Amino acid sequence: MRNKSLDAGKAMAAFGVVFIHVSFPGQTGQIIKALARSAVPFFFMVSGYFCYYNRRNTDRGKRITDKIPAKVQHILTLLAFAVLFYFLWESAMHLVEKEAIGPWLQEMVKKEHLKELFRYNSTSQLKPHLWFLPALIYCYILDYFIEKLHLGKLAYLSVPVLLGYFLWRAYFGRFQGVFYHTMEYRNYFFMGMPFFLTGQMIHEYEKLLDRKLSWQVLAVGGLLGSGGIIWEYFQAGAREVYPGNVLLAVCLFLLCILYDTKSRRLEYLAVLGREFAFPIYLLHPSVAELMKKLADFLGISRNPAYLWLRPILVCGCTIFLVRAVSRLWSSQQKCGIVFRRHN
């Protein structure tokens, strides 16, 4: 049986990713963006949670061989689709803006940019938000070797160390005058693996956590994390991540895992998270670009009402587009249009 709370959490996290890239105006928008930065750690924990298997299983080797490579292949397929889509999209945008495509292509395949892709999962030359997919592939590959070499418990012990390095590079280091480029901490190793492994740990010790943690404790933890993020924003200004994001993401994930709801009120959110979280993540930048061009054409791009509605409109239009494409694709398959047999 699917976890409705977790599916709804995935939908909220997808909206959080949208709010990171399409901000509400003013300081309120920056606070919402700071809170929304818990979304990516949440998604890494989801991936780790569903990649867990029982280490006491005697058929461990076979399960590794079957499970992780299949997941890598799935993400590679999604990444290939995303790269193709945004290559065509950016090419079309260059043509619309009457800009030369050649220099853009040359810039994208420069040696230093390819090194950043393979070393740090940086996809900034195409679309920055796509970095999550190669990072997740690296996490699966690392987990494959962790399990093959029976290093699961040791990997769990590395989680606080990796989180410490991550927060030092992303947040605390700046107070000592040490600065890191975003890609030097927002990558598979410092951001991906600690949360990925945390998701696995939560799965392994789920029964124990269920006995020890009440929903009230997790709710208070989430509120403390949220309050910490807001306080950290006012103290340190805009950052890529805050320590409070770690607490908020973990508490929300535990609430979803341990306290699944049966309420019908979350049904629509659960459906969105189950079926459309990835398409929302993938397509929202293109929807935002189209909306910006439309707003410029209509002369409302600086209108306060539009600026406040813009993130919500991007979410709504992206959902509408995804659902429309999904229904069209489904109807075509049923009618035999997509894979039509030729005589």
Rank of each mutant, 00 (worst) to 15 (best):
S124D: 12
A295W: 04
R274C: 11
L269S: 10
A92G: 04
V159Y: 03
R264G: 03
A14T: 05
G102V: 08
P134G: 12
F85H: 06
Y140T: 02
K153V: 04
F44E: 10
L321T: 14
G102F: 02
L163P: 06
P285Q: 12
D296C: 14
K262I: 06
E116W: 06
W104D: 09
R60F: 09
L255H: 05
I75L: 14
K4Y: 08
L248S: 03
G173D: 09
P194W: 03
R310E: 15
L248E: 03
E112L: 04
L309V: 05
N245S: 15
Y268S: 11
E267V: 06
V322L: 08
V83H: 02
A82R: 07
I337G: 00
C315K: 02
V217L: 13
L88G: 15
Y49Q: 08
G237D: 12
L218Y: 01
Y233C: 05
L117P: 09
A249Y: 11
I31A: 07
G9P: 08
L133Y: 13
G237Q: 09
R169W: 01
R55I: 07
H284S: 06
A219V: 06
K212V: 15
I146C: 07
S331T: 01
S91K: 12
E232C: 04
K207A: 15
R341N: 07
P311K: 10
E99F: 14
R310S: 12
G29H: 06
H74C: 00
L213I: 11
L105M: 12
R211M: 11
L223A: 15
G244H: 08
R211K: 15
P69H: 03
M108R: 10
A324K: 14
I300Y: 07
K115M: 12
R323I: 11
F44H: 00
W104K: 15
S326R: 14
G29N: 06
K71P: 00
D7I: 00
L88E: 07
A170V: 08
F196D: 04
R265K: 00
Y53C: 08
G173E: 09
L163A: 09
G225A: 01
M1D: 12
P128S: 11
Y233N: 06
S91C: 12
V287G: 04
R169Q: 10
P160C: 09
L105K: 00
C51D: 15
L114W: 13
L223Q: 03
G221D: 00
I230F: 12
A324M: 14
I75A: 06
V22G: 02
H94K: 13
L252Y: 03
L117A: 08
G222L: 00
L307P: 01
M201Q: 11
L208T: 13
G244N: 11
V72G: 02
S122I: 05
H284N: 09
S286R: 10
L130K: 02
V83W: 03
H74L: 11
S38C: 13
K292W: 14
N187R: 04
K115N: 12
I20L: 09
P279M: 03
